[in-house]
């Protein structure tokens, strides 16, 4: 589904990703772990299409197409979704309208009819249950006045409604208390499917207790230093990132 080859990315002239390669197939759940400043968020932002990242070399191929030439909205239509580390508040833009516009823009792109208001609300209510989101959040402005945990829950709710093929969860666990983490992780688990790939970016092993990854990657100094299974995360938790560097 996603093939990243030798990706070099700079921000303000400083190289952050230094030849990163990664292959992700449908149905897989990947965890990318690494210390602060390793380039984890840069990677997710580059995949989602955010401005301000200079791609100096390498390629990102998504479903056979060059992802890097696509606009953020084209990527969304093609099934890419980013759950933001810091979801932005957008006063005056209604949460539900945003999703309706997003869903219908994608359907239009796929040559499907727009969902009518009734069908759409049915889907929305069903998905809100998935992350135990209070229905009153649906009629509020996007993330406005939401607590940190509510924002993260709202991201996973949006993911559920938009039904992406490739979902990137950027530190979705940070700022969540243990109950909220359990609920959010439960929502993500219900969204696992053979057609969907999920990439979790996280600092901590504890998320992986709830969402079991197929692969764990260690990202440091702009490259994937090591790839393993779930046990790699446990070793990291125990020994720290320096252990990986020392044992290369």
């Amino acid at each position: 589904m996603l093939v990243i080859k030798d990706l070099h990315v700079s921000v303000d002239g400083k190289e952050i990703l230094k030849g990163l390669s990664l292959t992700i197939n449908a149905g897989e759940v990947h965890a990318i772990m690494g210390p602060n400043g390793a380039g984890k968020s840069t990677l997710s932002n580059v995949i989602a299409g955010r401005d301000g990242y200079e791609i100096t070399s390498g390629s990102v191929i998504y479903k056979g197409d060059d992802l890097l030439v696509m606009s953020p909205e084209e990527r969304a239509w093609a099934g890419v979704f980013l759950a933001f580390q810091y979801p932005v508040e957008i006063p005056g833009v209604n949460n539900t309208y945003l999703l309706k516009a997003g869903v219908n823009a994608k359907r239009k792109h796929q040559g499907l009819e727009a969902l009518d208001a009734f069908d759409f609300m049915r889907v929305v209510k069903e998905k809100a249950k998935l992350v135990e989101l209070d229905p009153s959040f649906l009629s509020r402005s996007v993330n406005e006045g939401f607590s940190g945990g509510e924002k993260k829950r709202n991201e996973i709710f949006q993911m559920a409604v938009l039904e992406p093929d490739l979902a990137l969860l950027d530190e979705t666990d940070s700022g969540l208390d243990i109950d909220a983490l359990r609920i959010v992780a439960g929502g993500v688990n219900k969204l696992r499917s053979p057609d969907r790939a999920i990439v979790m970016i996280t600092h901590y092993q504890r998320l992986l207790d709830y969402i079991e990854p197929d692969f764990v990657h260690v990202l440091a100094n702009g490259v994937i230093l090591k790839t393993g299974d779930k046990s790699l995360a446990l070793k990291l938790e125990e020994h720290g990132y320096d252990w990986v560097k020392e044992n290369l």
Partner: peptide
């Protein structure tokens, strides 16, 4: 940031600009 957020949800750039402008006025 708001523009990128909306676009990442599938709203076209022009529509996202419009929506934010409208939301700004509507407050």
């Amino acid at each position: 940031k708001q523009l990128f957020y909306l676009r990442s949800r599938g709203i076209s750039e022009a529509a996202a600009q419009e929506l934010l402008t409208f939301a700004f006025a509507d407050e």
